[in-house]
């Protein structure tokens, strides 16, 4: 489906654009981290150690107000003093209020975000493209019905819709044994399971498929009227043939570009759901931000580190989206066409 010419365009656009390289680098780092988190993380992200709570990242200092009572001359004196909390090389990005390692948590959190982002987007693409192409290709009543339904879906703010659906279905999630731990490659101290937040994945897909449906429909509408579609039909090509061989391949570019943008949006949505406590995930960027929020004034890093991770992921994915758009769009008719 990817022609040599498309590859050529992708490559030349990549060599031209610094931002595209940056986007790929960022995403590669995040992907790598997510895949090999048990090998890379210095600690078990769920390990608590209250003696070591609220340790700041290396290079920062933090003070904590401590109240101690002392007996001075037979009277109880309450002393408030500022205590300096020492940073430690063991926790390069500090620890949270329960003494869990922030770096390890952020590394493992990437798994949740990417799982939800990629799987959620895939389901949304399949659903949206199927509906959109059916609507656009057949038109008429089918189109009216499907698109009215899509408009209704769009009328709800996505977060509200997601929360409503989760409220309806509960928070089903599956625990999948982590192969790296199970095979003994990673330390057995790491968590044994990867949590697959099933409901959340389905819900973010249901909230976002409409965008794909709209784009796919628009593409199908314009491809449908091309003469090569007429030609295929005049040769006896069935609807399925026309859709698979002509409509789908020619609609793919904008769908692909949209998908990258939607992955970022879905990662944000998952974070919001976790932040609000609706996803049930205990190890995700959004969840950690929610945890760290109450310590923002004293231990800012608890929320900031996962927050920066989200920002980096979204930026990286969007840069890749821009690259795909620039590389794929003009390549169809414009470039190198002989007169």
């Amino acid at each position: 489906m990817i022609s040599p010419r498309t590859l050529r365009n992708l490559r030349s656009e990549l060599s031209r654009s610094l931002l595209a390289k940056l986007g790929i680098a960022i995403l590669a780092v995040i992907l790598f981290t997510a895949l090999f988190a048990p090998l890379l993380a210095p600690h078990d992200p769920t390990d608590q150690n209250l003696d070591n709570a609220n340790v700041p990242p290396l290079g920062f200092t933090a003070t904590e107000n401590q109240t101690t009572s002392q007996m001075v001359d037979g009277e109880v004196q309450i002393v408030e003093e500022e205590v300096v909390v020492n940073t430690t090389a063991e926790h390069p990005l500090g620890t949270d209020s329960l003494g869990r390692d922030v770096l390890s948590r952020t590394m493992f959190g990437a798994r949740t975000s990417l799982l939800v982002g990629l799987l959620g987007t895939s389901i949304a693409v399949v659903l949206g493209v199927t509906v959109g192409i059916t609507a656009g290709y057949y038109g008429g009543r089918i189109d009216d019905a499907l698109m009215r339904f899509a408009d209704v879906m769009l009328a709800f703010p996505s977060l509200v819709l997601a929360i409503a659906l989760i409220g309806l279905w509960g928070q089903a999630s599956w625990r999948i044994p982590d192969p790296l731990v199970a095979l003994g490659i990673a330390s057995s101290e790491m968590p044994e399971h990867v949590v697959l937040p099933g409901t959340v994945i389905v819900v973010v897909a249901l909230v976002n498929w409409v965008w794909f449906a709209r784009v796919a429909r628009g593409e199908a509408l314009s491809v449908r009227d091309q003469e090569y579609v007429k030609a295929a039909r005049s040769m006896g090509g069935s609807d399925l043939h026309v859709i698979l061989k002509h409509v789908l391949p020619n609609s793919l570019t904008p769908i692909l570009v949209l998908a990258t943008i939607q992955i970022a949006a879905i990662i944000l949505l998952e974070s919001s759901l976790s932040f609000l406590g609706f996803s049930g995930a205990q190890l995700s960027w959004g969840f950690d931000i929610a945890q760290g929020r109450q310590y923002l004034s004293s231990s800012w890093w608890i929320a900031t580190v996962p927050g920066l991770a989200i920002v980096a992921a979204v930026i990286g994915i969007n840069l890749i989206g821009d690259w795909l758009r620039d590389a794929l769009d003009p390549g169809i008719e414009g470039q190198g066409g002989a007169p």
């Binding site: 003469e227 090569y228 030609a231 295929a232 005049s234 040769m235 006896g236 061989k245 391949p249 008719e333």
Partner: peptide, 28 residues
């Protein structure tokens, strides 16, 4: 069979000349 008017839109831009010419053979 039909031969169409528009040299641009009558050929699928994502197919090679070979794929285009053999499309009726593939269909049947």
């Amino acid at each position: 069979q039909v031969m169409f008017q528009d040299p641009f839109s009558s050929l699928d831009p994502r197919m090679t000349a070979g794929e285009i010419i053999t499309e009726p053979l593939a269909i049947h």
